[in-house]
Amino acid sequence: MTILHLALAGDWTAAVRAGEYRVSTLGRTLAQEGYIHACADLEQLRGVAGRYYGQVAEPLVVLAIDEQRLECPVVLEVPAGAGEAFPHIYGPLPVSAVVEVTPFTP
């Protein structure tokens, strides 16, 4: 299954150099949050973008992630106040698990 993550283009560029991605969400790291936020589909991703990334000036990219290439668990969880489950990646995201990177325009 493919899941999606919205990333700052600069964070993704840094991850490519490092070999893994460790940003949970806008302004929060994997170490701070405990997991990397992801979306099950483009509809969820657009909702997240509208709620949290509307004022971001830096270019954004969508990371398409092949769950089978991850070396850590992905857990579907319903965040507090949300009415739907989101996939959470409980570990670093290897660059090799990202099968497509697409520019995102809200």
Rank of each mutant, 00 (worst) to 15 (best):
P73R: 15
L42Y: 06
G91Q: 07
A31Q: 14
V78L: 07
A49Q: 14
R17P: 03
S24L: 02
P79R: 01
L93I: 01
P92C: 03
G34L: 01
Y53V: 00
A80N: 00
P94D: 11
Y52H: 14
P94E: 12
P92V: 04
Q32C: 01
T105R: 13
E43R: 15
P73F: 06
A57F: 02
Y90E: 09
E33P: 00
Y21R: 07
Y90S: 03
T2D: 12
A38N: 12
E84Y: 14
H5V: 00
E100K: 15
R28D: 00
D41P: 08
Q68V: 08
A82N: 08
L70K: 06
R69E: 12
R46P: 05
Q44G: 11
S24W: 00
Y35W: 10
R51K: 13
A80P: 07
A9E: 15
G10N: 15
S24C: 10
I3G: 04
A49L: 02
A49Y: 02
H37K: 06
V101L: 11
R17S: 12
H37Y: 11
V78Y: 00
V95F: 00
T25S: 15
V61Y: 09
Q32I: 09
P73C: 06
Y52G: 05
L60I: 06
V99Y: 03
M1H: 10
Q44M: 14
G27S: 02
E77M: 09
V56M: 02
G91S: 04
R22T: 14
A57Q: 14
S96M: 05
L6V: 10
L93R: 01
Q32N: 06
R69P: 02
V78H: 03
V23M: 12
L8A: 11
I89G: 06
Q32A: 15
V75S: 00
R17N: 08
Y53A: 02
G47P: 03
G27A: 07
L70N: 07
R69H: 09
L76G: 00
I3R: 08
T105H: 10
E43Q: 14
D41F: 07
I89R: 07
E77W: 04
G50T: 11
A85S: 09
H5R: 03
P106H: 04
Y52A: 13
V75D: 06
G19H: 03
L8D: 13
A85W: 04
T105S: 11
E71W: 01
A31H: 09
Q32R: 13
A57Y: 04
A82F: 14
A18E: 12
Y53L: 03
V101G: 11
V75M: 05
L42Q: 13
Q55K: 14
L76V: 01
E43N: 11
